[in-house]
Design a protein around this nucleic acid. Structure first.
Lengths: 229, 229
DNA sequence: TAGATTGTTAATCGATTAACAATC
DNA sequence: TAGATTGTTAATCGATTAACAATC
């Protein structure tokens, strides 16, 4: 372990390592080499060793990595033991889907409450989480420390709500609206999910694959003609 | 424009370009330089020019890019004009959220129907989309060409459903379940969204920022002591 | 001990950017 | 024309990987 710079890509890979290691642990596996892990992840063995090497020496030469140790270490690196406090803004379809299905505690977060503007759901409890009025957001933030806001409001409200969050000490915004949010450098940290980007990426790759398949077919047809001549 | 290799990063940036250009178009802007666009996107001007340069010469020297042209070009590159056919698997909370809120047609996709196992919702219509029985999935795929499957089933069913999709000619899987799916090289293309990865990334960055802030505070305190001595 | 596998450096590879000719 | 900005090459920067000493 040394002070070499940790790349953004390394950080982005850590949650993936954790996910697969948890699956392996659930299946009863205790130990794994970087080679075996690389086959599951599609990431090269030196890449895995280098990534982990930024944070310490977690493996054992000649054996590999002990899964419980490495899971604990990655959780620690990701800050999962801090019990970050989260609130959820906007309990429409997406917000409700997260409220009801997403297991925040499994990732070391605790979801304090939700906020919405609709008077019909304000005051109700969804999956054990109370829905408060959006009007009370600022006063709530003044009285409670919130680390992360899960932003699920309509796109038209996204910027305004993000500003309130940033001005009131929220550390991070998990932006699940269908727009991007930009904040000044050094202010709140934003993860812009923007789901549709992944769908468009798929569309591009399907187009390219069809094109490549077509090219290969033509090449094969040409070869066959040449042989028969 | 030439045959230089197009990087994965370039493709991943295209949907973002498109999103911001659409917002600019909606605000009535007609023309933009790579410099101005870079300030909106946080991507360097040469990066933008280089990215676009892979696909053609869309700008005008001395002026910049005409927004309608560049939007059309990026849509074309992403394959948005092919009207890809999509189906949605699993109409639980997340699936329903996408059915009701996600504007597939806005991204050039058409959502044909949904599938679920719950007999109470099979046969119903949600936001104009018919929900069919999961039992009929294979026969549906045999009779209809489907480009993309939006996978929202429970994680326990994810792999089994993905296999059926891959074996029956679906080109791409937009995997919104909370697990990763691996398929053989050259088979169906998978986009593993795995939402929680982004949340963990936020957690890491909050931890690091707190640590950096702490270090800076200590440094300042030390400097002040030295000055007063 | 022999075999296996880590941790880490140096070499390589690929992505970004600086710079500038072309030209609107 | 002068000023602005693209498109593209060459230079730089950073990320990945090959290789191997260390060692379980």
């Amino acid at each position: 372990m040394n002070k070499r710079k940790i790349s953004e890509n390394t950080i982005r890979r850590l949650p993936r390592y954790l996910h697969h290691l948890s699956e392996l642990a659930a299946s009863g596996k205790k130990c794994i080499s970087s080679l075996e892990l690389s086959q599951i992840l599609g990431i090269s063995p030196p890449q895995i060793r280098y990534d982990l090497g930024h944070f310490g020496e977690f493996g054992r030469k000649g054996y590999g990595y002990y899964i419980p140790t490495i899971r604990k270490e990655i959780s620690r690196i990701l800050g999962m033991r801090y019990g970050y406090k989260a609130i959820l803004l906007g309990c429409g379809n997406i917000g409700r889907a997260l409220l009801c299905n997403f297991d925040f505690s499994n990732y070391g977060f605790s979801l304090l409450c939700g906020f919405d503007t609709n008077p019909e759901i304000v005051g109700t409890v969804l999956n054990g989480v109370e829905i408060k009025s959006m009007d009370d957001l600022e006063s709530y933030l003044a009285e409670n420390h919130v680390d992360i806001a899960v932003l699920c409001v309509p796109r038209t409200a996204a910027r305004a709500v993000a500003d309130i969050l940033a001005e009131n000490g929220v550390e991070g915004i998990w932006n699940l609206t269908d727009t991007y949010i930009a904040v000044p450098q050094g202010s709140v940290i934003v993860e812009n999910v923007h789901l549709s980007d992944g769908l468009l990426w798929l569309g591009y790759n399907i187009k390219e694959k069809a094109y490549e398949d077509e090219k290969r077919k033509l090449r094969l047809a040409r070869q066959r003609t040449e042989v028969s001549e």
